[in-house]
């Protein structure tokens, strides 16, 4: 027998269905994509047209883009992002370790922290910190060193504590996930060479957890850039608040909002690129997969 004698269903009689050399590939047409693209373009054009023809003085946008109030707001926004994120990551690591501690007091304290700060709105927390003087008129160690709360709780301080502590509650969960992702065999091996629990975490577990922790934290840095704008309600002069201050005076509302939007997008774009580079670096640093150039025994033998 040299192949089936029956013709393919629907194929020309007498031609073997296994004879495929004469067939041609037909590219799919994707009409849907073309229609979708046209609709998107039309909508986009309409929006652009509205902005161009609308009551927007683009010259004003250009003029305020580098105004000193806007630039100092930008610096404050970036600085707050850095500080709040640093505080958030530090607290996140600390509370993740506490949540996983064998000590029940630490465990419950950490659970309470996460529960409280994830469970209340950020705006509310900011207002609480800013108005802390109403509850604690003075803070410090009684008898040793004390300050008036209103002096300490500047808009910067209140924003830093509000954003950082709130961020810590989320980061704690991210870090905990990262720690759980590390093979328990790594911890056991560390114990057998005499490491204590904390040394094991610091030297063996956390460095390996980084690969899992970095991407979501990078994401949260970007989210933090925009979250700082919430602090305008407690008079922290970040970029959005400074833009508002200007448009309250000159009534160029849309223009100044566009200025702020341009700067937010610029910062986020830079951070996105940075995150990408950082992730690539860590994927290489982790080396759980053999690198192509090394690896197999035979290649080096």
């Amino acid at each position: 027998m040299s192949g089936p004698a029956v013709a393919a269903p629907g194929g020309p009689a007498g031609v073997s269905p296994y004879e495929i050399a004469h067939l041609t590939h037909v590219r799919p047409k994707h009409y849907g994509r073309w229609i979708a693209a046209a609709l998107v373009l039309a909508a986009f054009a309409a929006v652009v047209k509205a902005f161009v023809e609308g009551q927007i003085a683009w010259a004003v946008v250009g003029q305020f883009l580098t105004a000193s109030a806007i630039l100092s707001g930008l610096v404050n926004t970036v600085a707050m992002t850095v500080w709040a994120m640093a505080l958030g990551v530090a607290l996140g690591v600390l509370f993740a370790i506490m949540v996983m501690s064998p000590n029940p007091v630490l465990r419950w304290l950490a659970r309470f922290y996460i529960w409280f700060f994830r469970g209340t709105p950020l705006l509310l927390q900011l207002l609480l910190w800013f108005n802390l003087a109403l509850v604690f008129p003075r803070i410090g160690i009684p008898g040793l060193i004390e300050w008036r709360t209103v002096d300490v709780m500047t808009p910067f301080m209140a924003t830093l504590l509000g954003l950082g502590i709130n961020q810590g509650a989320y980061t704690a969960e991210v870090v905990r996930g990262g720690i759980l992702s590390v093979d328990p065999g790594q911890t056991e091996a560390a114990k057998t060479i005499g490491m204590t629990r904390l040394t094991t975490l610091r030297r063996i577990v956390l460095p390996q957890a980084m690969r899992v922790i970095i991407p979501p934290v990078g994401n949260e840095v970007i989210s933090m850039v925009k979250l700082t704008s919430v602090a305008s309600v407690i008079q922290y002069s970040e970029i959005l608040r400074n833009a508002q201050t200007i448009y309250f005076a000159n009534a160029r509302v849309i223009e100044l909002l566009i200025v702020a939007a341009i700067w937010y997008l610029a910062v986020v774009t830079v951070l996105t690129v940075g995150q990408h580079l950082l992730e690539r670096r860590f994927a290489r640093g982790g080396r759980t997969q053999p690198r192509p150039e090394a690896g197999a025994e035979g290649a080096q033998a």
Partner: peptide
Amino acid sequence: SDREVARQRLASGMVFQRFNLFAH
């Protein structure tokens, strides 16, 4: 305590079925 147990573990070394080398 954790620290004292860690010290006692120094007397013995362990080799695991799945090696458990530090991956990083």
